[in-house]
Design a binder for these strands. Structure first.
Lengths: 340, 340
DNA sequence: CCCGCGGACTAAAAGGTTTTCGGAAACGTA
DNA sequence: TACGTTTCCGAAAACCTTTTAGTCCGCGGG
């Protein structure tokens, strides 16, 4: 292990030039004769020279590092965002310092301070839900972008999935398949995500002049609630030929219970989920058609904008990102009641 | 945003001392009069002084940063390990640079180089399975520990869950509940995790003098396979009163299919899973008894050992970490065939 | 009175890189 | 020869902190 690392001094003396010239040659600047540049490059190669980011950062005042602050311990949302950010930064040689506050405001403050004392160039804050969260950016010396969960302060930069639009995608799909009696089972009424998706449903139904089948059923984001809702809806509820679920967990529970109650999915009943959580959506019987909030793209975009903000050009406000519909086997054209 | 940050120079001149004295006062060293120290501390407070980690690192040659290199895009294993590492480092003011290679060796090399050029003090490599993976540590200037997936090179430091022991825990639990006809459904035969768990099963059965019910059924780590295996086993297979599944995914599929086939879990049939993947294990009907590989603890331990290795004291070899059994409702005392 | 000593403090160096500015050489022009 | 212009290279400063090697002063002992 660990022989001393080569410095630009070693490179310079091996090439027989000054460090200034070596630096210029390595950084591709003018004022260096081609032959000299060759010698320096060869020397650097031989010594496996890599410039120290500390010395470099000391000068420029930049660490080429951003902090990613999350509260989503399961990584459900922060991992895709991280991947997207890595994509965006990878080329630019940025690195991501990941901190998980585990939903604890104290811990978040602690991590925030630690990141700042490390002189990160910027910060990405990933929320655990799409509900606006307190801004963290007041008087911070670095730019911040919020991903998934927006900041309460509209002068911050936030990127959130367009849940209204995503829901419209799902419902238009159901309508296009000939479904007309569409129910809605979703999460807690005080979640913005649930509200937005219900709003999208209403909008899509409205533009087609179709009425929703029954009231929206608000519950929890769990499989358990999906099953429970299915039992209520399919035994005593309104006649339905499709259900739009507020999450894949709910949808997974719903299709399972629907099967047990003898409904054929998708023939008798089409089901759409939300989130495209692969482990769930692809493993149900049948696999779920669902709305994909494109979190990786969201992360990529957030990172690009953070990058721009570090460069000085911020674009404040809440940016809504398109979702996309992933069609699997839980939806199909309606063939009429009791067909086959 | 961003007024210029205070340096130790500003603090020193505000306090009316030299930078050397200021440094000593701030770092709690001797040779500073108490009254002087007070003045310096007050000045630092007033200017919100925070020492630059770059300048400090330049001197000490340490960045107080470790890299966490993973290939597990879903974060299933790396997230708990990350959390544990954060725990272990949090006190010591280390930070974690997270890189995801997405199973691509080229990308892994790229990230490795990037991390090294950033002068991380150490590296944690998280595997995507418990199968040994090629060592990355040859001629690296920093210590490396492997977590979850061990290195092929026994002179490296690796921390892996004790799958044999974990399986024994599960099977002893079934035996203690009075189950005697225990089947085993697990993942691909070429996965070390599957092999180890089967070995643990055999060991636990052996020590009780009980024979396994039927052959081990090797398949994939999917719910689909769990369902399929349940159908085979429960319609045409040997008489069984318990099944030990190689993963929670398999177990989830198994209990679902078992229910549909009219078996009562846990009364007629006890089911144990593996991994304690909460989203799955806690949401099945009934919730799964399962083996928890304590990944967070594993991450914490790995981080502690990395810390020690950075300090100079390495403890090479593969370290097996105990698992623990999480008992939920899918197992209960056997009440005899067709009771109730 | 001188010496030595210990306490409190400071000047300066070190760490690695980039950048600015000045200098030297080479060449062309008057 | 004197002078201006390029072209290429090097010396040194700057970034910020810690550490080393002093310096200065007062005081007690000889």
């Amino acid at each position: 292990m660990a022989v001393r690392r080569a410095t630009i001094n070693d490179v310079a003396s091996l090439a027989g030039v000054s460090v200034a010239t070596a630096s210029k040659a390595l950084n591709g600047r003018q004022d260096v004769r081609a032959s000299t540049r060759q010698r320096v490059l060869a020397a650097a190669e031989e010594l496996a020279f890599q410039p120290s980011p500390l010395a470099r950062g000391l000068l420029s005042g930049q660490t080429r590092t951003v902090g990613l602050l999350t509260s989503d311990s399961a990584g459900r949302f922060s991992i895709p965002v991280l991947l997207g950010a890595e994509d965006a930064f990878g080329a630019g040689e940025m690195a991501v310092l990941l901190c998980d506050a585990r939903g604890d405001a104290i811990r978040e403050q602690h991590h925030l301070r630690a990141l700042l004392s490390r002189r990160v160039d910027g910060l990405i804050v990933v929320g655990e839900s799409t509900d606006p969260r307190p801004s963290v950016s007041k008087d911070l010396p670095v730019p911040v972008v919020y991903a998934y969960g927006p900041s309460e302060d509209p002068s911050d930069v936030s990127f959130v999935p367009d849940d209204v639009g995503g829901a419209m995608l799902a419902v238009r799909h159901l309508l296009a398949l000939g479904r007309r009696r569409i129910a809605h089972v979703t999460g807690p009424v005080d979640y913005k995500a649930a509200g937005d998706r219900a709003e999208g449903l209403a909008a899509a139904l409205g533009e087609a002049g179709v009425a929703q089948a029954g009231e929206t059923l608000w519950g929890t984001w769990s499989q358990r609630w999906g099953r429970h809702a299915a039992e209520m809806l399919l035994t005593a509820g309104p006649e339905i030929d499709a259900v739009f679920c507020g999450s894949d967990q709910i949808a997974a529970g719903f299709v399972e219970a629907a099967r047990e109650l003898g409904r054929r999915v998708p023939d008798d009943l089409a089901v759409v989920g939300y989130d495209n959580w692969e482990v769930l959506a692809a493993e149900t019987r049948p696999p779920l058609t669902t709305v994909d909030p494109s979190l990786e793209r969201l992360g990529r975009t957030a990172a690009q904008h953070l990058f721009a903000a570090i460069g000085g050009k911020a674009t404040p406000g809440v940016h809504k990102m398109d979702c996309k519909l992933v069609i699997r086997d839980s939806t199909a054209r309606f063939t009429g009641p009791r067909s086959a």
